[in-house]
């Protein structure tokens, strides 16, 4: 049974690499007593689908992940997972996509970010020129720049940061604060 989780990553958990997420969730599920569906093949592993990759050091508030349970879903799934997830991870909701729903990867159509430069440098022009037509919305919110881009897996936020570095506008990640507010699903 497919379950779509919405979870957040705060504090140190923002530095857990994307590649470590399957293990974090599979062990958490095991601690919560949930049995996951396994992939086929030579070395079966729990089946997962995660949202578009985030680079280390980005706070994420509403990230999607599909897990596949062997049994029927318990009522209190978010609570059960939350008591077994590592520090910094928190599940806020679980939904059940219909049988014929497209995969999570195909469903992530846009992403909403908050971005600011630690010395209040305006990033508006850089964002506009870097994202071009992929920039769907942009505006100021409480000292942050709120940015919505399309197709987050094709337009990763990490590429924007690298671009700023290459242009010597910033010297490194520590000069930016980035939050992904949510991944927008179709």
């Amino acid at each position: 049974m497919r379950v779509r989780l919405i979870y957040s990553r705060r504090d140190g958990a923002c530095f857990v690499p994307h590649t470590a997420l399957p293990q974090v969730f599979s062990r958490s599920a095991a601690r919560a007593g949930l049995r996951l569906m396994m992939t086929q093949g030579f070395s079966p592993r729990p089946k997962f689908s995660f949202g578009p990759e985030l680079p280390a050091g980005v706070v994420a508030l509403n990230e999607p992940a599909d897990i596949f349970l062997q049994d029927t879903t318990p009522d209190n799934l978010p609570e059960r997972l939350n008591s077994s997830l590592p520090e910094g991870f928190r599940v806020s909701g679980a939904t059940f996509p219909p049988e014929d729903a497209p995969s999570l990867g195909k469903s992530c159509i846009a992403a909403e970010y908050l971005i600011r430069h630690t010395q209040s440098l305006s990033l508006t022009d850089y964002i506009t020129s870097f994202y071009g037509a992929s920039l769907l919305e942009m505006g100021d919110v409480d000292g942050w720049l709120r940015v919505v881009t399309s197709e987050p897996s094709k337009n990763p936020i990490g590429a924007f940061v690298r671009n700023l570095r290459e242009k010597s506008i910033i010297t490194g990640w520590h000069q930016l604060n980035i939050v992904r507010l949510r991944v927008i699903l179709s």
């Binding site: 140190g12 530095f15 958490s28 280390a56 910094g88 991870f89």
Partner: peptide
């Protein structure tokens, strides 16, 4: 973002070794 550790982790190789995310 205001913690000094965050600032450090944003600048080093393999920041995950300092992040302390554990169960």
């Amino acid at each position: 973002f205001s913690s000094p550790q965050w600032r450090l982790m944003s600048q080093v190789s393999r920041p995950s070794r300092y992040c302390g995310s554990e169960w």
